[in-house]
Design a protein around this nucleic acid. Structure first.
Length: 933
RNA sequence: GCCGAAGUGGCGGAAUGGCAGACGCAGCGGAUUCAAAAUCCGCCGCCUUUAACGGGCGUGUGGGUUCGACUCCCACCUUCGGCACCA
């Protein structure tokens, strides 16, 4: 009694594929179109495969199997993103070396993936933790280290267009004479400052619980993304990658990619480009005392015409003389690249509100804090800055909605009107964005208004809102904001109280004043990005070591000078260690490595100490798609011929949780490699699909604590891999979030069992064809059904609309499985259609239908266009847009014939009787609509 | 607060501006069976009427465009995702 038995069929065919190396891709065949289909490779966690994994993996497997049958050569690899915290945390708890845990987890994942019958070329498998792989991760780091970004460099891209800005070898960095004259050490330091990989001392997010520093992106609401542990800010020396240099290209090159618009937008927003101006405010050679100059109006005073910028007191004070000198100097010398000590440089997106600046704010970490603080204020300033330094990001944002700040005691002079305004320190201004200093325009910025209200600072309106012109209204009324004291007008409007610029529209004002201040050397156009440079070092053990040495002086202290390992020294393998407990201090784990690993003496006698940080988990996943193309190469990270043949990845499928970070980092590395001539495409992933999350049966996110986790092992045990695959594709659109349903799995299992019974004899003792299957000619109707099914299933696979493809196959089976006798010729094409979805069952049925070879490379069925049309079509007939009847007409009937058929239908004729037909709409093959009175 | 996506039967979902609810699940009725499981057949948006045919309403809400709107436009509501003192 051979019923549909997935337990028997599936291991059998998995063994056949393995034995015959069915999906192994040998060389590149220039005569065949290529297709590179990639899954986001998994982190092999201890809990094994999750039902979310097979969702994307099944989708790509269908695409691969389909395209092989369409005659393409398909590259479809799988591997492991195996560095990372959990294995090390496990090591801390149990003492098991992370390598052991990682190997065990990989074995589990590999077993589970093979159990699902995915057509990977397993000969290309690797883990990011393999020394042979991270050798090249380190090598790429060395290329990044060896590169500086020449923002003005012009080059022609593969698209034939002119581009500006390119990564170039550090040896080509122009060295200014004043640096060169200071000697070799100065030159080396200068180069180090310009590398794409550089060291930087800055407050970082230190997580004591995890024992590591983590990136801004890994901090969520002041807690670590992993584990939700508290994060504190500490100043530390860290490795940074200069991803911001590539911000513009990372935005621009999104355009040519076949990604969903919302993912592109997510990346654009993450990069967060903003355009505005930098403006220098004069602060004098020494702090300007208060009480000099014109001062600012009292809070809330109505502006009058006497407040013209020219209304300076005739007798110039010391500060004003200095200011006038500075200004005329600037007109001659122009705007300097770096602000001098006599100015405060600010960034604004609204240079049109310069006349409305009533105070300035600098970040607590701003270098000018000391210089601007007057003796009377120094105690208060010191207290404030100390507090701010201790505050986590959480304290600085969410909790502390009320603004805090402290006055420095100093003033600056607004270059557009000569007004002297106070300089404050507040942590609502971030040191890491723009210049770390702002001009505050409380009338037109919510944050500034809140601060001004808190500290009783003046508010000056310089933009009036233009109400929409009513057609009959001759006189346009301007509306002045703030209408209420806590509502700033941040929109665009018309300039007021802005001296010579009054009445200009915001847009025009911006470009005018930017040009004007640039001409006077007081400011310039500027662009800023929300994106920050990438914090690239971690203090953990289980990651790639840096191929970098620090030079030591006579007393074994680092001099700050670096030496890179030579290419031949790679891989720098992890030292063996037995103890993994975090030190509790921000000192990296590798600081406890054996002395012989940590130190060496260079041939020139210099003592060297290894870099003890390790790379973040992102490093390994940044370039794995390249290594899959040429995984065994021990001369290069990828052969350049292979790279040209296979790049870019044609289809990349993975979870939306990587929509920003992984994809951005990966694109960044790819562009560096492109600039240095190692890859030939500007982008790595041509098409991207983000599969939607699978929720638990209760509609909530699957998690241990909710107890709603579905284990793929259990599903396969109960229904088989084909049912799991088919169900995950049948649930709904790939990109949608959708809840699991065990009854749904049962449903597709019943469908597969039906397919089995349609072909095999369930009553016989051995496996044989169903006796209803006979060598007879199919009816025209049956042929039409088959060809229609081929047509739509093909179209749906191309569109990655797998749920509807499955529906159409169900319809076919509903019809054919109920007919006896069944024409045998209908079955092979159907089995081929089913095979990408349920490959095990399809192979078994293919064999049963008398074929000896695997169907994996059988040509995909073609449909006959003549057979996808029925002889007659049913045309709905509407009266005034309401369905009233349906008429049957021959396919291809012309407009007149259809109209006649509709009008003569008895029910329609009855309804039309006595009515006047105003209009008749006939869409051939579609519908008829009579519009009547 | 800002940006994005989505709202269709009891549930998952389907519909180039042209018959709303394909396909599946659940449910109901029947066949088969000693009985059950499995299987097969039929019904299955809501209201209403009828012996039967039928009629009205219906795709988050309210408007609009159109002969015709789940689909396009405007406003709003809800849910989910992202960002969140970025000047």
């Amino acid at each position: 009694m051979p019923r549909y038995d997935a337990q028997r069929i599936e291991p059998k065919w998995q063994a056949v594929w393995e034995q015959q190396q069915t999906f192994r891709l040998s060389g590149f065949d220039p005569g065949k179109p290529k297709m590179y289909v990639l899954d986001m490779f998994p982190y092999p966690s201890g809990s094994g495969l999750h039902v979310g994994h097979p969702e994307g993996y099944t989708a790509t497997d269908i695409v691969c199997r389909y395209n092989r049958m369409r005659g393409k050569q398909v590259l479809h690899p799988m591997g492991w993103d195996a560095f990372g915290l959990p294995a090390e945390e496990h090591a801390i708890k149990t003492g098991t070396h992370p390598r052991i845990t990682t190997e065990q987890n990989i074995d589990t994942f590999r077993r589970q993936l093979k159990m699902l019958g995915f057509s990977y070329d397993w000969s290309r498998e690797f883990a990011t933790t393999d020394p042979d792989y991270y050798r090249w991760t380190q090598w790429i780091f060395l290329q990044v280290f060896d590169t500086w970004y020449d923002a003005g460099f012009e080059w022609t891209g593969p698209d034939g267009k002119l581009h500006r800005g390119k990564g170039r070898p550090i040896s080509e960095l122009p060295i200014p004479d004043e640096v060169r004259s200071q000697g070799d050490t100065a030159v080396r330091r200068f180069q180090d400052q310009h590398r794409l990989a550089y060291q930087h001392e800055a407050p970082v997010n230190w997580c004591p619980e995890l024992g590591t520093v983590i990136a801004n992106e890994e901090v969520i609401d002041g807690k670590s993304e992993r584990g939700g542990h508290p994060v504190v800010r500490l100043p530390l020396r860290q490795w940074m990658l200069r991803i911001t240099a590539y911000a513009e290209r990372l935005i621009d090159d999104l355009e040519g990619l076949n990604w969903s618009e919302s993912i592109k937008l997510l990346q654009r927003n993450w990069i967060g480009k903003s355009e505005g101006a930098e403006v220098d405010f004069f602060i004098g050679s020494s702090p300007l005392p208060p009480g000099e100059g014109s001062g600012v109006r009292e809070r809330g005073a109505v502006p009058t015409s006497s407040d013209s910028p020219l209304a300076l007191t005739p007798a110039l004070s010391r500060g004003e003389r200095e200011y006038e000198d500075w200004k005329s100097n600037r007109t001659r010398t122009g705007f300097p690249c770096e602000p001098g000590p006599d100015v405060l440089r600010i960034y604004t997106t609204r240079p049109d509100t310069l006349f409305g600046a009533t105070y300035m704010v600098i970040a607590p970490e701003h270098p000018a804090v000391k210089r601007l603080t007057t003796p009377e204020q120094s105690a208060a300033v010191e207290t404030y800055c100390k507090q701010a330094a201790m505050k986590s990001d959480l304290d600085r944002t969410d909790l502390a909605k009320t603004k805090s700040g402290v006055f420095t005691g100093s003033h600056a002079i607004n270059p557009v009107n000569g007004e002297k305004i106070p300089i404050w320190i507040a942590d609502y201004v971030l040191i890491s964005y723009g210049t770390g200093a702002i001009m505050a325009v409380p009338a037109h910025d919510d944050r500034d208004l809140e601060f001004a209200n808190a500290f009783k600072l003046p508010i000056k309106v310089v933009v009036a809102k233009m109400p929409k012109k009513e057609p009959n209204e001759g006189q346009v009324q301007m509306v002045f904001y703030p209408a209420s004291p806590d509502q700033a007008f941040t929109g665009e409007g018309v300039a007021v109280n802005s001296g010579p610029y009054n009445d200009l529209a915001t847009f025009e004002f911006k470009s005018r004043i930017t040009a004007d201040i640039a001409a006077q050397g007081l400011g310039r156009k500027a662009i800023n990005y929300r994106l920050r440079d990438w914090l690239f070092s971690r203090q953990r053990y289980w990651g790639e070591p840096f191929p970098i040495w620090h030079e030591l002086d006579a007393s074994d202290q680092p001099t700050g000078l670096l030496r890179a390992d030579s290419e031949s020294a790679l891989p720098i393998t992890l030292p063996d260690m037995a103890e993994f407990k975090p030190t509790g201090t921000p000192e990296p784990m590798l600081a406890k490595a054996p002395t012989e690993w940590l130190y060496k003496t260079a041939p020139d006698g210099t003592r060297l100490k290894r870099e003890t940080n390790t790379m973040p988990q992102w490093a390994g996943s940044c370039w794995y798609y390249l290594r899959f193309i040429d995984p065994k190469n021990n001369q290069r990270f990828i052969d350049s011929e292979c790279e040209k043949q296979w790049l870019p990845v044609d289809l990349y499928v993975g979870g939306a949780e990587h929509a920003v970070l992984h994809l951005l980092y990966s694109r960044f590395w790819h562009k560096v490699l492109f600039d240095r001539g190692y890859v030939s495409t500007v982008e790595p992933f041509q098409r991207l699909i983000n599969q939607g999350m699978i929720l638990g049966e209760n509609g909530e996110k699957m998690s241990k604590s909710r107890g709603n986790i579905i284990n793929p092992d259990d599903v396969v045990k109960a229904y088989g891999a084909d049912s799991l695959r088919l169900y995950e594709m049948f649930m709904g659109p790939l990109e949608a979030v959708k809840p699991w349903s065990m009854q749904g799995v049962e449903g597709v299992f019943r469908f597969l069992a039906r397919v089995w019974r349609m072909t095999a004899d369930e009553k016989a003792d051995d496996i044989r064809l169903n006796p209803a299957i006979q060598d007879i000619e199919p009816s025209l109707e049956q042929l039409r059904l088959l060809h229609k099914t081929i047509k739509v299933v093909t179209r749906d696979i191309e569109a990655m609309s797998f749920n509807t493809a499955i529906s159409r196959m169900m319809e076919f089976v509903n019809e054919i499985a109920g007919t006896e006798p069944r024409p045998k010729s209908l079955l092979p094409p159907f089995v081929l259609l089913l095979s990408p979805f349920a490959p095990h069952l399809a192979e078994e049925l293919w064999q049963l239908l008398g074929h000896e070879k695997s169907l994996a490379y059988e040509p995909w069925p073609e449909f006959d266009p003549k057979l996808v049309e029925d002889a007659e079509v049913e045309i709905p007939v509407q009266i005034n847009g309401k369905l009233r009847a349906k008429v049957l007409v021959p396919t291809g009937s012309d407009q007149a014939a259809i109209e006649t058929a509709a009008a003569t239908d008895s029910r329609i004729a009855e309804l039309l009787a006595g009515k006047q037909i105003v209009k008749t709409v006939v869409v051939p093959g579609r519908l008829v609509n009579f519009v009547v009175k």
